[in-house]
C-alpha cells in the first residue's frame, strides 16, 4: 500500500470528500509528523504509535568496501514505536503477551 492507496481508500470510505481534499489530508498528516520530528519533537498518535528522534553519538566506523576507518558524525535518527494496540493487531492478536515482554 502506498500513499495513493491510502487516498483511494479514504475516498471510498468518505464519499463527500473530493480527491484533492483526500490527498491534502494524507499529505498534511505525514508532513506535520515530519516537521515535528525535524524540530526534535515527539509525535504520539493514540492507538497507533509514537514517532520520535534519537540522538546518535559520533563513532568510528569502517567503509565496508575498503575496510578503511572513517569518522561517523553524530546524527539524529527518526524512529517509530508501535502502540500496544497496533502491535497486537499486526500480530493477529496472538502473541500479545510475548510482544509485551
Amino acid at each position: 500500500m502506498t500513499k495513493r492507496g491510502i487516498v483511494g481508500e479514504l475516498l471510498g470510505r468518505r464519499s463527500t470528500l473530493s480527491h484533492r481534499q483526500a490527498e491534502s489530508v494524507v499529505n498534511a498528516v505525514f508532513e506535520a509528523i515530519a516537521a515535528a520530528l525535524a524540530e526534535g519533537a515527539r509525535v504520539e498518535i493514540r492507538s497507533f504509535g509514537a514517532f520520535g528522534v534519537k540522538q546518535r553519538r559520533p563513532r568510528q566506523g569502517r567503509n565496508p568496501r575498503t575496510g578503511e576507518l572513517v569518522e561517523v558524525r553524530a546524527k539524529r535518527v527518526p524512529f517509530f514505536r508501535a502502540g500496544e494496540e497496533l502491535r497486537g493487531e499486526v500480530n493477529g492478536r496472538a502473541g500479545r503477551s510475548v510482544a509485551k515482554s
Binding site: A32, I33, A36, A41, R42, V43, E44, I45, R46
Partner: peptide, 8 residues
Amino acid sequence: RRKPSLNK
C-alpha cells in the same frame, strides 16, 4: 532538548 509533543 525535549520539545512539546505533537498529537492527534
